[in-house]
Every structure is written in structure tokens, then in C-alpha cells.
């Protein structure tokens, strides 16, 4: 099968059962995307598929042959960090670092959703206006569990990027 990851086409010969997550981690050496639960219950495996954030553990690699997949490695590298990565670094939006790639990719996808005017459970109105206050960010990021509990700093990091319009 053929997958396009971070703009690069890759030919793979995989067991049909291989999840997108395991394809990345076990077969493409893209280990930045993490496995925390393998059941869509933690968000550590978040990637962007055609710009939308999804749990890569709960989809089969073979189902994404026509898609553009972006992983944490595709956002930025040390020395050339994505603004969201830089903001997490400065705000200490992580500790052990294991949920972090998922948080960052999720945050990037989430800001895009907010820009499109998508509401959330925390939105007072459904009128298509979104103001990303702390409660909105927390709700929208609740699909990414951080057991070290960097939540306050994660919220700060994301709010900062959003306010600077950097992502």
C-alpha cells in the first residue's frame, strides 16, 4: 500500500490489520506519534489526516492511501520548531513528554477547527463565533490526556499561539 506522510510518499507491505499508528511506529520509524491506549481513549496518537486531527490508533493504514497524513515530525524539528512546539516548550506544556506530540498535533488541528467557527461543548452560543478562552481550550483539548498534568501550561501555550495568530 502507499501512504503519504509529511508530504513524502511511502510504499509499504503491511498486514491488512495494521493500524495507521502501528504503520507509523513499527514500519516507518516515525515514532513521534505515541501509543498510550490503542483505543481512542487518550489522544497520544493524534495525527492530522488531510488537516483534521484524528486518533491514528483507531483507523487502518490501508484506509488512507489517498490521504495526506501529517505527524509531529512533519510540523517542525529542533532548530526549526513549529510555533505550537515552541510555545509548548516555553510554557512547559509537558513533563514526561509522552502525550506531548499528540497534544501539539491536536492543538494545531483544534485551532483550525476554531478558525472555521466550529462550536464546542463549552461554547455558550452555536452562532459560529468562537472565542478561545481557557474553558474553550480545555474542552477542545480534553481528548488528549496528560497524566503528568501539564494542563494549565498546555492551555497557556495554546492560547498564546492563538492570540499571536502564529499557527
Amino acid at each position: 500500500m502507499r501512504l503519504t506522510i509529511n508530504g513524502v510518499g511511502q510504499e509499504l507491505d503491511l498486514d491488512i490489520r495494521t493500524s495507521l499508528l502501528d504503520a507509523l511506529r513499527d514500519h516507518l520509524a516515525l515514532t513521534g506519534t505515541k501509543k498510550g491506549c490503542d483505543h481512542g481513549q487518550c489522544g497520544a496518537c493524534t495525527v492530522l489526516i488531510n488537516g483534521r486531527r484524528v486518533n491514528s490508533c483507531l483507523t487502518l493504514a490501508v484506509m488512507h492511501e489517498d490521504d495526506e497524513i501529517t505527524t509531529i515530525e512533519g510540523l517542525g524539528q529542533p532548530g526549526n520548531l513549529h510555533p505550537m512546539q515552541e510555545s509548548f516548550l516555553q510554557h512547559d506544556g509537558f513533563q514526561c513528554g509522552y502525550c506531548t506530540p499528540g497534544q501539539i498535533v491536536s492543538a494545531v488541528g483544534m485551532l483550525d477547527e476554531a478558525k472555521k467557527g466550529w462550536p464546542s461543548h463549552a461554547s455558550k452560543d452555536l452562532d459560529g463565533t468562537v472565542s478561545l478562552d481557557n474553558a474553550e481550550i480545555s474542552e477542545r483539548m480534553s481528548g488528549n490526556i496528560c497524566r503528568c498534568s501539564a494542563y494549565p501550561n498546555i492551555v497557556d501555550a495554546i492560547r498564546d499561539v492563538n492570540e499571536k495568530g502564529a499557527a
Binding site: G32, P78, L81, Q85, F94, G97, T100, P101
Partner: peptide, 10 residues
Amino acid sequence: EGPLKVSGRA
């Protein structure tokens, strides 16, 4: 080690 962690390189 932050740059490695935020970029998935750790």
C-alpha cells in the same frame, strides 16, 4: 530535552 520532546524526537 524539551526540543526533542516537542518534536517527537525523544
